[in-house]
Amino acid sequence: MLTFRPSTDKDLPRVMEIWRRAVDATHHFLAPVDKSAIEAELMEFFPQVSLQLSVDAADIPQGFMFLHDGHLEALFIDPDQHGQGIGKAFISRAIAAHPELTADVNEQNPEALAFYEQVGFVRTGTSSHDGQGRPYPLIHLRHQSPM
């Protein structure tokens, strides 16, 4: 059974470990200098916001999600937990709160795109750069409720 809770300051080291492991497993396209810059930005940003965590029976985070104004800003699952339903459970929780949920996915991350499409997202557009102006194209998505 999955347990969810808000993050606390003590979770930051594990959250960053999940982020690093997930990025290493899925974001092969990131230049090392960009990966380092993004990590530094997140180390400053994450303590300022409340992330939703999925935790195991020992209360150790296994994944995290960050929503802002109906947009899924971040969804990262420890690669050892991929395929266990954590991502789908996060998406279900997000859609319950925001039925018109939007998200962006890196064009160079086909596994993530396949996941989002599998859980009901449709493509609504593209951008040639990410939200920080880096040259990583994005695919914009919106959740489409079943008819």
Rank of each mutant, 00 (worst) to 15 (best):
residue 61 P to I: 11
residue 104 D to E: 15
residue 133 G to I: 06
residue 64 F to I: 05
residue 122 V to F: 07
residue 99 P to H: 09
residue 29 F to I: 06
residue 25 A to K: 03
residue 114 A to L: 08
residue 10 K to R: 14
residue 5 R to A: 04
residue 10 K to P: 00
residue 23 V to P: 00
residue 89 A to R: 06
residue 9 D to I: 09
residue 93 R to K: 10
residue 32 P to E: 13
residue 102 T to D: 03
residue 128 S to K: 11
residue 70 G to H: 02
residue 109 N to A: 02
residue 146 P to M: 04
residue 100 E to S: 09
residue 58 A to V: 08
residue 147 M to W: 09
residue 94 A to S: 00
residue 90 F to K: 00
residue 64 F to A: 01
residue 16 M to Y: 10
residue 123 R to I: 15
residue 134 R to Y: 12
residue 105 V to E: 06
residue 1 M to S: 13
residue 21 R to H: 13
residue 79 P to M: 08
residue 138 L to E: 10
residue 80 D to T: 13
residue 28 H to F: 13
residue 26 T to N: 13
residue 33 V to R: 11
residue 89 A to E: 15
residue 108 Q to V: 06
residue 135 P to E: 12
residue 124 T to N: 03
residue 106 N to E: 15
residue 75 L to N: 03
residue 110 P to R: 06
residue 3 T to Q: 15
residue 112 A to M: 04
residue 17 E to A: 14
residue 95 I to P: 01
residue 112 A to P: 10
residue 106 N to V: 05
residue 121 F to A: 05
residue 97 A to W: 02
residue 48 Q to Y: 08
residue 133 G to V: 11
residue 88 K to T: 15
residue 75 L to S: 01
residue 24 D to Y: 13
residue 79 P to S: 10
residue 2 L to S: 01
residue 142 R to A: 14
residue 131 G to E: 14
residue 77 I to K: 05
residue 56 D to Y: 10
residue 118 Q to P: 00
residue 110 P to W: 11
residue 117 E to L: 12
residue 77 I to T: 11
residue 126 T to K: 13
residue 119 V to H: 12
residue 51 L to R: 02
residue 87 G to Y: 10
residue 55 V to W: 14
residue 53 L to T: 11
residue 43 M to S: 10
residue 54 S to M: 12
residue 3 T to W: 14
residue 29 F to P: 03
residue 34 D to E: 09
residue 100 E to R: 02
residue 17 E to W: 08
residue 30 L to H: 04
residue 92 S to L: 07
residue 66 F to L: 15
residue 20 R to E: 15
residue 38 I to E: 10
residue 132 Q to F: 12
residue 78 D to T: 08
residue 139 I to E: 05
residue 19 W to C: 02
residue 126 T to M: 09
residue 6 P to G: 08
residue 78 D to Q: 06
residue 56 D to C: 05
residue 45 F to C: 00
